[in-house]
């Protein structure tokens, strides 16, 4: 197991958002987490990254407790996030954004190799490398956000709604690349999506979250057939 959330509870001030969430992710898997607006999906990812540390419960990354670690220590262990809304550094160039992704790395040769790899995945980024991040289109920004996370050469990649606000064609392209990256590199992916149909077709297993609790978990094959999921999330 690469990541294990054990009954975590997270709060914003006095407001409890996660009410005991347990999730297990195996190495190399793509796991989907789906749920309605405000269910607590983003908060779950932020808990894993140490930005919203859980008040109760435990998080283990490769059998190491990380629930008391600061975000930079967690990144150093090999967890990268593509956050909701992309969060490109708007005034840094595309190149500098990618450099920031590799902020904690010292292996120059490896960094260069990964840079070539992301430019191969997203050739448009190579063309725009000197442009500032804020001037990219939404789709290009999402590609940059994913590339920035890949530049950390993570063992676990967290993706928060990569389809948000993008045209269907771009979404399709991006999801193909996510799958390709998973197969080629073996990187484990934890994917949060509101687009349940897309997420369940991409992932191996899935979790459904409702107001801070996991209500259903299964293989995506079964989830796509599950009546409850169909009604609530697939609009069937």
């Amino acid at each position: 197991m690469i990541l294990e959330l054990k009954n975590i509870q997270a709060f914003y001030g006095n407001l409890q958002v996660l009410k005991g969430v347990t999730i297990k992710i195996n190495e190399g898997e793509i796991i989907a987490l789906i749920g309605a607006n405000g269910a607590g999906k983003t908060t779950t990812l932020m808990s894993v990254c140490g930005v919203v540390p859980p008040r109760f419960g435990e998080i283990y990354f490769m059998d190491k407790p990380i629930h008391n670690m600061s975000p930079d220590k967690i990144v150093a262990l090999g967890i990268s996030q593509v956050p909701e809304g992309r969060r490109i550094f708007p005034l840094l160039s595309v190149m500098e954004n990618l450099d920031m992704g590799a902020f904690l790395r010292k292996d120059k040769a490896g960094i260069k190799q990964d840079l070539e790899y992301v430019f191969e995945l997203f050739p448009v980024l190579a063309e725009r490398r000197h442009q500032s991040g804020g001037t990219l289109s939404g789709g290009e920004q999402q590609m940059l956000a994913i590339s920035r996370a890949i530049m950390a050469r993570p063992k676990l990649l967290l993706l928060d709604e990569p389809s948000l606000g993008l045209a269907p064609l771009i979404v399709k392209q991006i999801f193909e690349i996510i799958r390709k990256f998973n197969t080629e590199s073996g990187t484990t992916i934890f994917l949060v999506e509101q687009n349940a149909n897309l997420a369940l077709k991409t992932a191996d297993r899935g979790y459904v979250m409702e107001t801070g609790s996991i209500t259903i978990q299964d293989t995506t094959k079964n989830l796509l057939k599950n009546e409850e999921v169909k009604k609530a999330y697939l609009g069937l």
Binding site: C49, P71, D72, V75, R87, L91, E96, M100, F103, R148
Partner: peptide
């Protein structure tokens, strides 16, 4: 210097790429 600029632009994101 890059870390300073990144932090000025988005503190939360700077943390997520490992900036202390």
């Amino acid at each position: 210097g890059k870390a300073m600029r990144a932090t000025a632009q988005d503190k939360g994101m700077a943390m997520l790429v490992g900036v202390n």
